[in-house]
Every structure is written in structure tokens, then in C-alpha cells.
Design a protein around this nucleic acid. Structure first.
Length: 197
DNA sequence: CGACCGATTGACT
DNA sequence: GTCAATCGGTCGG
């Protein structure tokens, strides 16, 4: 592993909107034993504490505890009675903000992901593997045990790509929320096939 | 305590 | 396009 490419704590301690944009094009990595599961982040949404659509809006609770912790941790929550979604916590300890990872483009561990997603290995529509927040969570095997994991550890972390690729960042209002529709806090890589919808 | 509903997905008309 | 699945968080009484 190229340790020097791992995003440092300081990356996550900046403003949530800035972190959201800068996460596009970086690589989410999960190391499970000898298996490496990874993918390029291509779609995200920012959730700020002053935002009615954020879990942290009404204050600290057992569920959103991790959001209020130090930036650079993984916040995984359960929703719709059957799905998990994963976020990157931002800001200093005490600030409840995070960036929802909505889609990644797979790099390593594609067969592992297919197993987790209950995909037949012959399926060719790979975009369906990770083109949604609950889909990539399932593909990476993120659930309750992963809630709160430190992204500066060696199990789950984010790295810069070996070769920077140019891409255009588009933005829109966030998906699936009622409050905060006016805020264009969804950012994605224009034209990438793994972006949801 | 009961009712409502959600940062979604997959199956189906 | 519509809709059910399925359950924990949140809010009102």
C-alpha cells in the first residue's frame, strides 16, 4: 500500500462542502485480510449540522454519535429497515457534519463485491454494483460493526489516486430528502457511468 | 406507547 | 412510471 497517499486527518477537518468536492476522484479502500476492496468516489452529498435534512440537526443521539466525533471517521447508519449508508465524518470533535458516499467506481475486489451484492458472476452491468449509497455499502460489507471506524487506521481508509485524472464536477440538489431541496449539496463526476440515476 | 416515515432498492404495471 | 419491503428513530399524546 502506498501509505503516503492516504488522506491525512487535516483533510477531513476542513469545511464539509470543501471535503465533499475534494473526495471526488479519491479512492475508498477496505482491507479485509488479504482482500482489498476499493473504488473511486464519484458521487457524494454534504450534510451540515444546521441543515434540517441532516441526522445531526436535532442534536447528539446514540445513533448519530459518530457524526459529532472527530473528522476522518466512518459513519454508517441503518435506514428503511433494510439498508445501510456510509458517510465520511468532517470537522472537529463536537461538530455534527458528514459527507454521504453515494457512488463509487469499483477498482479492486469486484468478485468479492459481487458476492456481497448477490450478483451472478456473469453479470456485465457492473454499474449496478455500486451506483447508490446502500449498494456500495453492501458491496463493501459496511454495517453496524463498521460505524465509527477511523479512516486513518489500516482497515478502511481513503487514498489519492496514483495518477490524477481530469474530470468535471457537476452539482445538484440532494436526492431523497424533503427539507433542504434548495441546497445544491450533491456533487458528482460528470458523465461517470457509476453515478446514481 | 402508537403512528408515522425515512440520506433506498428492486420488482413490477 | 408506481409500489412494497421492513424496522429503528422521532415525535405527539
Amino acid at each position: 500500500m502506498a501509505a503516503y497517499r492516504k488522506l491525512p486527518r487535516a483533510f477531513y477537518l476542513r469545511s464539509t462542502l470543501q471535503v465533499a468536492r475534494d473526495l471526488l476522484g479519491t479512492i475508498l479502500v477496505r482491507q479485509i485480510g488479504k482482500n482489498r476492496i476499493s473504488g473511486t468516489i464519484v458521487e457524494v452529498e454534504a450534510y451540515r449540522q444546521s441543515d434540517p435534512a441532516s441526522h445531526s440537526y436535532r442534536g447528539r443521539t446514540k445513533r448519530n454519535e459518530v457524526m459529532f466525533g472527530e473528522g476522518g471517521h466512518l459513519y454508517v447508519y441503518f435506514t428503511y429497515g433494510m439498508h445501510f449508508c456510509s458517510n465520511i465524518v468532517t470537522g472537529k470533535e463536537g461538530i455534527g457534519e458528514a459527507v454521504l458516499i453515494r457512488a463509487v467506481e469499483p477498482i479492486d475486489g469486484i468478485e468479492w463485491m459481487k458476492k456481497k451484492r448477490k450478483f451472478d458472476s456473469h453479470r456485465k452491468d457492473l454499474h449496478n454494483l455500486t451506483n447508490g449509497p446502500a449498494k456500495l455499502c453492501q458491496a463493501f460489507g459496511f454495517g453496524r460493526p463498521e460505524d465509527g471506524m477511523d479512516l486513518l487506521g489500516n482497515k478502511v481508509f481513503i487514498i489519492r489516486p496514483a495518477e490524477e485524472r481530469d474530470f468535471i464536477i457537476s452539482r445538484s440538489s440532494r436526492i431523497g430528502i424533503k427539507d433542504g431541496m434548495k441546497k445544491k449539496w450533491r456533487f458528482f463526476v460528470k458523465g461517470n457511468p457509476w453515478v446514481s440515476r
